[in-house]
């Protein structure tokens, strides 16, 4: 039990540190690399939470595709160090940080206050309910409409992305 607690704290600390590094790095490429690290660490955490398939998909989709795309686009731009990385205005910046911290505190406080109401620990997903097969059965029966709607969304997105980034008059950039 102690090892799992230790593992949780190590992973949580790593996630928070990498996420802060994403926001604070002035060079966006370092941000993207830290984002990849965050995603990989989160995948480990999903694995700890008995969701191995989600962890694998997290690696494939986020770390393997989305963040690679981010990194690639930024290397294509070859941005020099940003002139103004952060939004200007000390007062508004302070207000932004304060309100974000306030929100975080509000959520944490709400979680803490309502911990009596949350069903906790007792009914952890057992090995045989969390299989990929059950996931698939659930996805393709109860959520089939949402699944198909997502297919349409992806088609629209593909068309939209092509039409936005298309150069008029030629096929290659």
């Amino acid at each position: 039990m102690l090892t799992s607690g230790l593992l949780f704290y190590i992973l949580a600390a790593a996630i928070v540190l990498f996420a802060i590094a994403v926001v604070m790095s002035s060079n966006p490429i370092y941000s993207a690399l830290y984002l990849a690290l965050t995603m990989v660490t989160l995948a480990f955490m999903f694995f700890m939470l008995n969701a191995p398939f989600i962890a694998g998909v997290q690696l494939i989709v986020y770390a393997g595709a989305v963040v690679v795309l981010f990194t690639m686009v930024m290397m294509l731009f070859d941005l020099k160090k940003e002139q103004e990385a952060f939004a200007r205005g000390k007062f508004t910046g302070f207000i932004k940080i304060a309100s974000a911290g306030w929100l975080c505190g509000l959520i944490a406080g709400a979680v803490y206050m309502s911990s009596e109401m949350i069903v906790s620990g007792s009914k952890a997903v057992s090995e045989n309910t969390a299989t990929t097969k059950n996931l698939a059965i659930e996805l393709f029966t109860n959520y089939i409409l949402a699944f198909e709607a997502l297919g349409i969304l992806l088609l629209l997105i593909a068309v939209g992305a092509v039409s936005i980034s298309r150069i008029k008059g030629g096929t290659h950039a």
């Binding site: 995948a43 191995p52 962890a55 694998g56 998909v57 690696l59 494939i60 770390a63 393997g64 595709a65």
Partner: peptide
């Protein structure tokens, strides 16, 4: 358990 997904995910890194 999910060896194939794991290998695909890791090798995409």
């Amino acid at each position: 358990g999910v060896g194939i997904v794991f290998v695909l995910g890791i090798s995409s890194l």
